[in-house]
Simulated scan of single mutants.
Amino acid sequence: MAALHLFKIEAKRQIHPILWVFLISLLLNLIFSSRSGDAIYSDLNVLMNQCIGLYLPIYIFIDFYRDMYVGMNLLNHMVPVRTSLHFVIKALVLALGVIAIWATSLIQVFFSEQGLYAVRMQSSSHPVMGIWYITAAKFASVGCGLAIVGLAAALGRRISCKRLAIAAMIGIVAGITLVLFWLNQHGAAHPGQWMLGTSSIESYKQYAGFLTINFPEPYMNSDIYDTVRWDSVGINAAVALAVSLVAGRMFNSSKYEVYGKLGA
């Protein structure tokens, strides 16, 4: 019951920061999907996705810092649950919000005449598998991204100086993300050609945590299913699991509380 109570508290706290992004994304995707043939709407769509793609990881990072390092949300910490469970519940609530916002982008993918499904997926060799891939890749990405930020918060709590802690947290997130990017690039068919944070229909998206990557095929008439990277999904999922376990153990350690009190 305590865990459910904490989930409700966290969900109520996150509803406003997530809801306004969800509504804006839903409205603009509905507009853009009906006007996808206009270049200006296409450019605005890319800009919107990039802004949301920047906002969400930054918001999540700040939220983890304020809650798990500074301890500003006192009501959360008053619920009698282990810190690792607090971390899991926070990550679950944020994951649901991020997935809900991402789901609005599927309006363009599947219902726009210039969307990914109509232009590339429908004529590919495995359109249904493509749908499964899009879903699995995003879910693994969100889990991985949240786990990395959680690990950064757990390690940051061991540093008493707030400035050094923030620098260390940023370094951990950036470092692991760069390693994941390198692994994606290393396995790509055309590693020298890549784009970040785009809505390109030239290839399926790959992810390095929260970071969105496209490795476009040089020929648009190629089968888009050839750009599927299940190993990328597996890497993100494996990192999410491994990093979550490490972060959970750190959150439950006595050193976390000792250093945390000094850091707060």
Results as ranks from 00 to 15, higher is better:
Val70Tyr: 10
Ser33Pro: 03
Ala167Gly: 05
Ser200Ile: 01
Phe251Glu: 01
Gly130Tyr: 08
Glu10Trp: 02
Leu164Thr: 12
Phe32Thr: 15
Arg66Glu: 13
Ala100Tyr: 10
Phe215Asn: 10
Arg82Glu: 07
Tyr117Phe: 09
Gly187Asn: 11
Trp132Met: 07
Leu74Phe: 01
Phe110Thr: 13
Ala189Phe: 09
His186Trp: 09
Trp230Glu: 06
Cys144Gln: 13
Ser244Thr: 02
Gly130Cys: 06
Gly150His: 10
Lys12Asp: 09
Ile148Asp: 00
Asn236Gln: 01
Cys51Glu: 02
Val243Ser: 05
Ala136Asn: 02
Ser199Thr: 13
Asn73Val: 00
Pro127Ser: 12
Ser34Glu: 08
Glu202Thr: 14
Met78Thr: 04
His16Met: 11
Leu94Gly: 08
Ser199Phe: 09
Ser203Met: 01
Ile176Gly: 00
Ala174Asn: 03
Val119Arg: 15
Ser253Lys: 07
Gly145Asp: 06
Glu10His: 03
Val128Asn: 08
Val173Pro: 11
Glu10Gln: 15
Gly192Thr: 12
Thr135Met: 09
Ser125Ala: 07
Ala147Thr: 05
Ser244Val: 00
Leu146Cys: 01
Gly97Cys: 13
Ala168Thr: 15
Gln50Arg: 08
Ile31Phe: 13
Phe7Arg: 02
His5Trp: 01
Ser105Thr: 15
Gly145Lys: 02
Cys144Ala: 12
Leu96Tyr: 02
Gly175Glu: 13
Leu56Lys: 04
Leu116Arg: 15
Asp231Asn: 12
Tyr41Trp: 12
Ala168Pro: 04
Ile159Phe: 14
Trp102Asp: 07
Ile176Asn: 00
Asn29Glu: 14
Leu164Ala: 13
Ser232Ala: 14
Ala165Glu: 12
Ile235Cys: 00
Phe64Trp: 10
Asn49Asp: 00
Gln14Phe: 05
Ser200Ala: 08
Ile107Ser: 04
Ala167Asp: 05
Glu113Trp: 03
Met72Lys: 15
Ala264Glu: 13
Ile31Thr: 14
Asn184Asp: 08
Ile159Val: 14
Val93Trp: 07
Ile31Asp: 10
His77Asn: 11
Leu54Ala: 06
Phe61Cys: 12
Ala174Val: 09
Met169His: 03
Gly156Cys: 11
Tyr41Ala: 05
Ser125Cys: 03
Phe61Ser: 09
Ala147Pro: 02
Trp230Arg: 08
Leu85Glu: 12
Leu4Asn: 10
Leu245Ile: 11
Ala3Met: 10
Ser25Glu: 08
Leu183Gly: 08
Asp226Phe: 01
Ser42Pro: 01
Ala174Gly: 04
Ala264Met: 13
Glu10Ser: 12
His86Ile: 02
Gly130Phe: 08
Asp223Pro: 02
Arg120Ile: 04
Ser84His: 05
Met1Val: 15
Ser84Leu: 06
Phe32Asn: 14
Lys90Gln: 11
Arg66Thr: 12
Val239Cys: 01
Phe22His: 01
Ala118Val: 03
Ala208Val: 03
His77Met: 11
Ile172Gln: 12
Met1Gln: 15
Gln108Tyr: 09
Leu116Lys: 14
Asp63Glu: 10
Asn73Gln: 03
